[in-house]
Structures are given as C-alpha cells and as structure tokens.
C-alpha cells in the first residue's frame, strides 16, 4: 500500500521551493538573453555609465550575486527597483498599490465559486443547472471581459475611473473571473461529482440507516479533495487576473505583471511572479496541511491497546 504521507510531503517540498525557484529561473533567464543585462536598463547607444549602473543594481557579478542580493532584499520587504515601467522607482510601492486590489478581486471572484460548490454539495443547485453553467463557461475570459468593459463604459462614461466606476470594474472583473472559462461550472460539477462518488461508500449507507444526514459524515473524508479543488480554482482565478485586469483597466498585480512583461521590466516581473509563486506555495501548503490533519485525526485507525480495551469492555 502506498504511504499516505507521500502526496502531502511532495506538496510541502514544492511549497517550500516555489518562492525561491521562480525568481531563480527568472534570474537565469535574464542572463540567458543575448547581451549584457545592464544594457536592458541602460542601452549604451542612448545612455552612459552602464558599468556604474550594473554595479549599483548587482548586475555586475553574474546571476548568483544578483539572485542572492534580490532574495535577501525581498525577505526584508525590498523588492528592488523597476527597470523600465517606472525606471528607478521602488517595486515595493508598485506591489503595495496593486496587491490589495487583486486580493479584493480574487476574493470577490471566489464568492460565486464557493456558493456554487456549497450549492452543489447540499443539493441546493440542481443538476439541471449544470448544462447552463457549462454553456456560460465556454465564453473565453477576454470576450466576457470585453462585454463587461463595454457595459461599464456605457454606464459610467468619463466617470468610469471614479470610485463608483472603479467599484463597478472590480465587480464585473469578479463576475468574469467567477464565470468565464468554465470556473463556476467546474466548481459545481467538480464538487457534485465528488460527493456523488463518496455517497456510494458503504459508511454513508450505514449512516443513513442510523438516521444520520450524509453530508456531515462525508465532509471529513472529502475535505482533502475539496482542498485540492479549492486550490485549483484559486489558481485559475489568479491566472485570469492578468486578462481581466488589463481589459477592465483594474490596477492590480496581473496588470502590473503584464506591463512589466511588455516592457521587459525584469524588476517588476521578478517581484510580481514571486508574489504569485508565494501565493501558490501558500495554497499548496494549506492543501498539504489539510491532508495531513485529515489523515491523522479523521482516518486514524484506533491503536491496538485502545481497541483491546474496547473489546474487553464489550465482553465484560
């Protein structure tokens, strides 16, 4: 039999490595590109003092010097400086401005998915809704976002960047994230299939015969699978933020990553991708811990002395 701890351990190791491996790979990419990395910031044909700049930005000592300096700075909250987007400006300031917006967008986008999952688990959302949700989910995020952007512009016009307009953009962004690309349909059908399979287990039948409700019996056993599904959904939302934020002009971390990529601003891309990696690592960690807790607390077989004591009490 396969060891139960293998999967959570793989996840824990991946979670630990992810926040370091992503900036390491991007650093290697900077040096893999043709030319001197410092010339990306300061092309010699239009700017002088490339060597001084390279020394100041830790680009003069190879990838290891740059990576070690960046990672030690990042651990203290210093994510370096922007190379092109806001040249010389602090990336921390850009992140501080965009992370709360993206967090709000993700949480709002998660709401329909959680409601859908709860509705599917409890049976409040019937199976006949699934084809409709699937049909809506076929619309790609970019098309859905375009339609929502048009609605915002038609309703708010020049005021679409005021507080009310910005809130509307956020709400529509969450709507797109929650329903486009099969997000809602995936959440409902995934949870429904999970509970349908679990319901066929013998212990659920026994619980029903004892007059108990099936959901509280099934929930502890399906928790690891639910945690896995939740992680997949949040990753899907994170992936969608880039498209949604750019099309709906929401100043979030996805928009920041896109702008950094377009302008080859490795300073911004490094920080934004690491932020995404850290969040993904946190999700992996939560899933691994959930699996370990369920294995230790819920599925633990009674120890031998305890089982013997129970048998003796029963016999006595």
């Amino acid at each position: 039999m396969k060891a139960w701890w293998l999967r959570p351990m793989v996840r824990l190791v991946a979670a630990l490595l992810l926040p370091f491996s992503v900036p390491a790979i991007i650093t290697l990419m900077i040096w893999a590109l043709p030319g001197d990395p410092a010339e990306i910031i300061c092309p010699p044909e239009i700017c002088q003092g490339t060597e001084v700049l390279a020394a100041r930005w830790n680009l003069d000592g190879g990838p290891w010097k740059f990576f070690s300096a960046w990672i030690s700075g990042a651990m203290q909250g210093d994510f370096g400086k922007s190379w092109r987007l806001d040249q010389g400006g602090s990336v921390y300031d850009l992140l501080a401005e965009s992370v709360p917006t993206t967090t709000a967008l993700i949480l709002a986008g998660l709401l329909p998915l959680l409601l859908g999952a709860i509705g599917a688990a409890t049976g409040l959302i019937p199976r006949r809704v699934d084809p409709v949700a699937s049909a809506v989910g076929l619309v790609p995020a970019v098309v859905f976002a375009l339609l929502c952007a048009a609605i915002v512009e038609l309703n708010y016009g020049a005021q679409s960047f005021d507080t009310e307009g910005s809130l509307a953009r956020l709400a529509f962004g969450a709507l797109v994230l929650g329903f486009a690309d099969g997000a809602f349909a995936g959440a409902t059908t995934g949870v429904r299939a999970l509970f349908r399979t679990e319901r066929k287990q013998r212990y659920v039948g026994v619980a029903l015969l004892r007059g108990e409700r099936p959901l509280p019996n099934m929930l502890p056993n399906v928790t690891p699978a639910l945690a896995g599904q939740l992680r997949a959904r949040v990753l899907h939302l994170l992936s969608g933020t880039v498209v949604v934020e750019v099309v709906l002009r929401i100043n979030g971390i996805g928009d920041l990553l896109w702008s950094g990529t377009l302008l080859q601003d490795f300073g911004v891309v490094l920080a934004a991708a690491t932020a995404f990696a850290t969040l993904s690592a946190a999700l992996l960690f939560i899933q691994a811990v959930t699996e370990i807790l369920v294995a230790l607390v819920v599925r633990r077989a009674p120890t031998l002395p305890a089982a013997v004591a129970v048998a003796e009490r029963a016999a006595g």
Binding site: R11, L235, L257, T261, S280
Partner: peptide, 19 residues
C-alpha cells in the same frame, strides 16, 4: 504534476514570453 501545476498558467506563459 505538483511542480508543473502549482503556478498560475498565465504567469508562466508571460515569463516564457519574456524569453
């Protein structure tokens, strides 16, 4: 699967696009 699927796809795509 864990390592490859642990990051948001669009983030990986954008990083690849930089190359």
């Amino acid at each position: 699967g864990e390592i490859v699927g642990s990051l948001p796809r669009m983030v990986v795509i954008l990083v690849v696009a930089l190359l």
